[in-house]
Amino acid sequence: MLEVKTRKQNTVAIVEIEGEVDLYSSPQLRKVLLELTKEKSPAILVDLANVKYMDSSGVATLVEALQQVGKYSGNLKLANLRDAVKDVFELSRLDKVFDIYQSTNEACSAFK
């Protein structure tokens, strides 16, 4: 099962995900991210510390959110990727497309 929680830290909307993101669970993540982009949230940080697995549908969801954010000149960053998730981004060559940080604090400071 996937758990997706959103909290605010100053102006940053932090999306904390826990579980495995796959074809079954990615629509749940998509719903949360698209709600944030719909309200033109200027800074979105996706915290992947507790994501053990992500498939291409999860990656596609993040790409879609990144593109939506780009439309209103907002910012979306990723933090705390585990090795298995990092591998998927590297294999897809998307590690160069996303701003990826080692920690949520580091990512939050980078929004300023």
Binding site: D55, A60, V63, S92, L94
Partner: peptide, 17 residues
């Protein structure tokens, strides 16, 4: 084509890699 950044279409690439 991986230079084409868009949602979807990565599955076959991940399988072949």
């Amino acid at each position: 084509n991986l230079d084409d950044i868009r949602p979807g279409g990565l599955g076959v690439h991940l399988i072949k890699s």
